[in-house]
Amino acid sequence: MAEMQTQTELEAKPKQKVERREERTRPGAYFQPAVDIFETKDELVLVADMPGVPPDGVDIDVEGDQLTIEGRVRTEDYEGLKPLYVEYGVGGYYRRFTVGDMVDREGIKAQLRNGVLVLKLPKAHQARARRIAVEAA
């Protein structure tokens, strides 16, 4: 097999399972999405890989200085399928970040397309919890 993979430059990292401390009503496994976070003069941008999550399957919460992203996969895609060979687990995604005071919570924009969540967090000063609706791609 090795000689057949010579062109491969991209390498998949194993999905990291996350244990969530708080009680959940929804059972099942959660994984930590891989993220890029970068900062420009005007905003903080968070990009997260959440394959299998449809645009309406993501929740973003900001409370205090904590930003939480959570994604749920579509389960009906697996009906009638019997696993033969498995390289990755399937489940939701969950990750929490500390954003501090720099973010204008009212101006946060979210978009999910092809399993990639892009969160734009404009810089400002405000402190109040709210929930952000995701714009469908």
Binding site: A12, A29, G80, L84, Y85, V86, V90
Partner: peptide, 29 residues
């Protein structure tokens, strides 16, 4: 199914390295 996938991915081989994308193969009859 999640439990089954989890069990299978952690059995014998674990997650392979150096490959993209990782795949799951299913029998649909």
């Amino acid at each position: 199914l999640q439990t089954e996938l989890d069990r299978m991915v952690n059995a014998a081989f674990g997650t392979p390295t150096g490959l993209y994308p990782l795949v799951n193969v299913f029998d649909a009859g």
